[in-house]
Each structure stands twice: as C-alpha cells, then as structure tokens.
Design a protein around this nucleic acid. Structure first.
Length: 420
RNA sequence: GGAGAGUUGCCGGAGUGGUUGAACGGGACGGUCUCGAAAACCGUUGUACCUUUACGGGUACCCAGGGUUCGAAUCCCUGACUCUCCGCCA
C-alpha cells in the first residue's frame, strides 16, 4: 500500500512542494525513475508469464494424449530462465520502491500556513484568562518539592533523568487527572476505551508513520524487535490494521490511557526543568476512524473534545495551527493546544490534534466499504486529551497559594475521595 | 522452554503437481413468483497491478518468504500466528 504511487505520478510538483514545505528529505526523482523501471519490468514479466501459462497447457494436453512435447519443453526451459531473472530484478526493484515510498510524507492541507518552523505557526484564538495571583508565583518544581509530590532524584537513580516518580499525594493527583479525563471522554464525548500493549512490533510502528523516520527517537527492545510506544496513537490506530470495516461502523471513536516513551534524542538541555520534557509520561489519547468526507469536521470536534478538558480545569490556553514546517511526517493538518503556566509565565504544549487523511490508513491497510459497496481507505485522526506532565505544571502553578500550598481542582475531588 | 495439530474465498469446508481463482454447503445481493412475505427456482457475489476510448484482455495472490519443476493451493525448507498437552510463572 503506502502512499498512492498513482497520485504521486500524476502530481509530482505538488509532492515536491509538500516535501520542501515540510523540510523533509525525500528523493522524488529517484522514486519516479524507479517506478518507471518497475512498471517496465512488471510488463515484461507478465508477458512472459502469459506465454508460460498458455504453453504449459499445451504441454499438459500433449502429455495426456501421449504426444511428444519436447519442443515446447525446451522452449519453456528458456522462458522459465528468463522469468527467473526478471523475478529477481522485480523483487529488488519492488523492495527499493517500498523503502522510497515510506519516506514520502503526507501532503499538508491547503489551509495550513506555509512556513519553516514553529515561528510561523498561527495562533487561532485565546480562551479564558491567565490566572491572577496577588503574589509572586512559584514554578511547579518548587511547589511539587515543597508538597512532596515528586521525586525526580530517585527517578534518575533507578532509571535515569526524565523518568519521574510521583509520590504520595502527587501520585494520587496524577491518577485522578488520568481518570477524570478518561471518564470525561467516555461519558461526555462518546468514546470507547481500549487498554493496549505498550510494546509494539515494527510493522505497527510503520503503519502510523513513526518508522522509518523516527527510529532513533524510540526505545527499542532488540531481542524481540519491539518498540515502546511514543503515544497510544500507534496501537490504537493499528487496532484495525489489515481490516475492512463497513461504513455502518463509522465513525469509530476510541480513547486510551497509556504511558508514553520517548528518547528525545537531540533535545538535551532544552526545557528540561521538572516535568517539562520527559522520557516517560502519561497521556490520554483520542483516535477516530471516519469516512473521508467527514475528517475535516471530525478534526474540529476532536479539538473541542481536548479543549473541554482544559476548560473543565479552568485553565487559560491558546489554539495554534501548525505551519507546514512544524507538521509531523504523517499529518496533513494539526492544531496544538498550549496551556498557560502561571509560574513559568509561558505557554506549554499539552495536546496535538491531527488529521492524517488516508495516509495512515494506506500504510496500515485499513479500508471500509462505503454505502455503494465500494472499497476505500478511511481517514484517521488523533489528539491528545491530554498529556499529563505539562497539564500538571499548569494546575500546580495556577492552583497555588501564597504559602506554597495548593488547592485541588474541584473537578478532581470525586477522583481523590476528597470532600470540598 | 518441550511435544503435537492446524492456517484455503464473507463463513463452513473439499482439493490426485497440469482447462482450479479454486468443488460443495451456508450467507449476502439481484431477479422470477406473490396483495406482501416465506418457500422454491434462476443469476451475481474477492483483491491488487498492467493494458484498452470502451467492450475486454493479461499477471499475481489459497498465512509469509525461499526452493524443486516446463508447470505448485498441491512436493521440500525457513519463519509467523492459532489451538491442545507438559513445564515455569503473575
């Protein structure tokens, strides 16, 4: 499957532009040349095979009639040899095609701002007001330390930096946040929960587009060639890999809580204080499977689903439309939600909501039969709803008191067995 | 970890190395019949690629990858997965 080679063949300039705008390094010319070679080989192969098939029947007839078929046999011996040669070439070219196709990114939607990097992202709107504190706010790490919520030193001791340990009330708070978000999506947004494997195979990682590009960013268990998931998107989207669904099943909406693992190779020393950037963190993820004509509307809906969580916490945030240079490899349009951190006085990314069009469905081979019985690739979307670390930062910093204590957000009370 | 059995189309289930893309049954869909329905009968019912303005034609696919052969669903090798039994273990 992969990305549609016919589409690439017919729209090379569109692809060239998309690759450039996304700052990707995909070799389109080699791909197109290889495609031509492949088609020529395939044609020759098919032609010879057709000859072999028909003469083989003649041989069968003659043998049954006890006639001499030695002329045909020697002719076919030659043909068989040629076929074998072509077969070898074809196999090699097909493999080359596949690895080239895997490096072609998804094409951004036309309404995505064009730009090199995040400085070109477009702020769509601000929602709510930054919390007003009549004292100099502390940052989340100070608050967490003072209240005994986190033990990063011991996390570093037993695993390494970036593997946080939530302690006591901190652990309960983290768990309450996760449960609150999960139940919110289940009960108010109509998602169905999945609890999924945290280690997945290579095919699965390729299906959603993490591989081959991001192999260095993932934890890999070489013994079994398994990868720790960087997001629940991977196992949840691949839930339907190699399947054919019915239009009657759609839209499908799944939500899953999982820890996420990221090596964050190459980002050392950047925004590392406290919970800002971690190798392991918790996230509730929403995934949707929809008919193609519904995916644009579904993206807006999912964005709202994620926003609802921030609003439930009464946190100020902004919605950002990512520019082409900041879009992920597989995405054709992405909104980020950035929550206001009162202590650090900056916006922190807590959610990324993306429409992948048919890109992932092609790679993972997820199809559906539409109302007319026609087979199509469906569209996939996903969005964080939300990632907890930076949400925790915003909560601690927004709900702090002058004496360094913190209040528990009202919506979490039922999840912590607290009476407020 | 050890031993055995298996993997065929939407499902069940045949298949001797040569007209098998695949018998037979079921399901689904269309039609005949009927006031309507059931039953019965007739027909249709895979995917991908190449080619053709079109009708059509060609190739591949019977878990995956190799091999034997003029020719493989059918024979051989390797691997994946499923099931049963034993061992170990939460």
């Amino acid at each position: 499957m992969m990305i549609d080679i016919k589409f690439i063949r017919n729209n090379p300039e569109l692809l060239r532009q998309a690759i450039k705008n996304k700052n990707e390094k995909a070799d389109l010319d080699t791909l197109l040349n290889t495609d031509e070679t492949r088609r020529r080989l395939q044609f020759d192969f098919d032609t010879l095979k057709a000859e072999q098939n028909s003469v083989s029947q003649v041989i069968a007839q003659k043998k049954r009639a006890k006639e001499d078929a030695s002329a045909e046999l020697s002719q076919m011996a030659r043909v068989a040899e040629q076929i074998k040669g072509l077969q070898t070439e074809l196999t090699a070219v097909n493999a080359q095609m596949e690895s080239l196709l895997l490096t072609i990114p998804n094409v951004p939607q036309s309404n995505v701002p064009i730009g090199r990097d995040e400085s070109c992202n477009e702020v769509i709107r601000h929602v709510g007001e930054p919390v007003k504190l009549d004292f100099e706010p502390k940052d989340h790490l100070e608050i967490a330390t003072q209240n005994g919520l986190l033990d990063l030193m011991r996390g570093a001791k037993i695993s390494g930096s970036g593997f946080p340990i939530y302690t006591g009330l901190g652990a309960r708070l983290e768990r309450a946040i996760i449960n609150f978000m999960l139940e919110y999506h289940l009960q108010k947004h109509g998602y169905t929960e999945l609890m999924v494997p945290l280690a997945v195979n290579r095919k699965t990682m390729t299906g959603t587009g993490q591989l081959p590009k991001l192999e260095d960013d993932m934890y890999h268990i070489s013994e079994d060639d398994l990868f720790l998931i960087p997001t629940a998107e991977v196992p949840v989207t691949n839930f339907y890999a190699d399947e054919v669904l019915s239009y009657k099943d759609l839209p499908l909406k799944h939500v899953a809580y999982t820890p996420c693992f990221r090596r964050e190779a190459g980002s050392y020393g950047k925004d590392t204080r406290g919970l800002q950037r971690l190798h392991q963190f918790n996230k509730v993820e929403m995934v949707r499977f929809v008919e193609p004509q519904d995916s644009e509307a579904a993206l807006e809906e999912m964005l709202q689903d994620a926003e609802d969580i921030l609003q439930a916490f009464g946190l100020h945030y902004r919605v950002v439309s990512l520019c082409t240079g900041d879009l992920s490899f597989a995405s054709q349009k992405t909104y980020d939600l950035e929550v206001w951190a009162a202590g650090g006085k900056k916006y922190l990314e807590v959610s990324s909501v993306s429409n992948f069009g048919e890109f992932q469905a092609r790679r993972a081979n997820i199809r559906y039969k539409d109302a007319t019985g026609k087979l199509n690739h469906l569209h996939t979307l996903n969005g964080s709803g939300l990632a907890t670390p930076r949400l925790m930062i915003a909560i601690l910093e927004s709900y702090q008191n002058a004496d360094g204590s913190i209040n528990i957000p009202e919506v979490l009370a039922p999840w912590m067995n607290l009476k407020i």
